[in-house]
Amino acid sequence: MAIAFHRFCQFLLIFVVALALALFSILIIKGIAGFNLSFLIEPMANAGLSGGVRYQILGSLILISSAALIATPIALSFCYCFQNLSPFRRPLITLLHALNSIPSIVFGFLAFLFFVIYLSWGKSWLAGGIILAIMITPSLSFFLIDSLKALPTKYTETTKSLGLSFDQRWWKLYVPLLLKPYLTGLFLSLGRAAGETAPILFVACVFYGAGLPTGIKDNPILSLSYHIFQLSQEAYDPQAVSRLWASALLIVLIVLVLQTPYYYFWNKKRKGSQHAKLKLTD
């Protein structure tokens, strides 16, 4: 009886593993066919049916860079407030959790109303960057706060005993020490942001025509995720299909590359967790 359960669990695990393997194999096998240098370098032609995805890649990069630049000061401020302004801790955490849980399409909708309509920015790459920044700020802040908590106390104690004020500690101690974990967390969040479609759907993206932005208002950009979204609705045109798979493979690669530092440190962190050294009966 007990063995049956165990076998059952193993069976389910095998299923999960098979699923994951199948997922990646399909992506690689189908994607690699269309994956060549010209695909990466050339701009789109023929409404996505030929040419490459140059401006889609650039557009996605612009979006996540602006998101990074905007989210960083905000996340740092949150972290600062968390450390320094203790009465505000509870509302801060609650706010962050609340923001974190909101579906991305709601952000997209509100951003559309605010940037496109109210501010009359039209479709703008900056609006996309801002909304992505707002989306990644909560998880980035959590990451920073946890990293801060994980700092060895000996540093804090030393600096406190030296009589440094909080601000001095902040800039001279915390921020430099947080740099590595921060960058890890940042790239993790940027990886997530690179794959997002819903928030930028109404606000920053078009399918054709946008190159590099020349201003803020009325300057949409292309994005790899939106490109896949649009093309997947043509999913039965054979020309589109091969490009679709290649774009999908590309976006997964970009996300994985961005998240590599996180996985590298994740591996180290894992060593702490217990695995089944003791074999129980059955």
């Binding site: 032609a45 479709k123 078009v206 399918f207 054709y208 025509g209 190159g211």
Partner: peptide, 24 residues
Amino acid sequence: GPIVVKAAEVLKSNKDIDIVVDTF
């Protein structure tokens, strides 16, 4: 859309006019 996109491609290369098209 497709007509305008094609026309835009031509105008971009001939007259350097920027045209952005969306059919969402």
